[in-house]
Simulated scan of single mutants.
Amino acid sequence: MALLVVMGVSGSGKSTVGSHLADKLGWKFYDGDDYHPEENRKKMEKGIPLNDQDRIPWLCHLHDILMREHASGQNTILACSALKKRYRCILENGEAGTNCQNSSGREEPASQKILFIHLDGPMELIAHRLEKRRGHFMPPELLKSQFDALEAPSAPENFITVSLEKPVSEIVSIIEEYVRNRYG
């Protein structure tokens, strides 16, 4: 049983990669953007970056979804920006993750078995993608704020980083191979 979070800044391809990977593996897929409260959407549409107070209830809700799927034995992929380490802790631990610190080396509960897949690439490429995107509430003007907030995953977090400069099919194949080797 596996839980994956495809993460990165807006326009990095989280939803596209996550949905293609879910189709290929036959897993359940959730797009975190679908769960933003209306207030968050309106704020972003106005070009106002979200703050921690805006994000924490949303992240706790996404945690609940992941834990529900975990409890039912469902392999699941979530597309979610998860820009800060604190946000990833909330996805793993729910409300308890709001004060998350580094692991103390104890046995990890199942909720900390999330594999974060960081789609990484240059701001110029992502900005170009955002300029072409239509019908999304996240305006290209907020991209810099996303890069400013980004805390790339690092040890001891459970993650892999994949370059988004490759074609989607290649990105999905890289992740699929990693997942199959790791989770069988």
Rank of each mutant, 00 (worst) to 15 (best):
D31A: 02
G94S: 14
S81Q: 02
E157N: 09
H136W: 06
E38Q: 07
V179G: 11
S12P: 04
F116K: 08
P57Y: 02
P156E: 09
N93W: 07
K24R: 14
L50Q: 01
P139V: 08
T16P: 05
A22D: 12
L4Q: 03
L83Q: 07
P139R: 11
P139Y: 10
S103T: 14
I175C: 09
G18K: 07
M67D: 14
Y178P: 02
G32L: 06
E157W: 12
S154Q: 12
I114Y: 04
D64H: 13
D33R: 01
L164V: 12
E157S: 08
V179E: 06
N51L: 01
G94N: 15
D33C: 01
L119I: 04
V6T: 07
Q74T: 14
G8N: 08
I160P: 07
I90T: 12
V172H: 08
S163E: 09
H36F: 04
V9P: 03
D54S: 11
E124W: 01
L3G: 13
G13K: 06
F137I: 11
E151G: 02
I171N: 08
S145P: 03
S145G: 02
M44W: 08
G184W: 07
K85S: 08
Q53I: 05
H118A: 10
P122Q: 08
S103Y: 13
Y30T: 01
L4W: 03
F137N: 13
A2W: 12
G94W: 14
G32R: 08
E165C: 14
H136C: 06
A149H: 00
S145E: 02
V9M: 06
I175F: 09
N93D: 15
R129A: 03
S173Y: 03
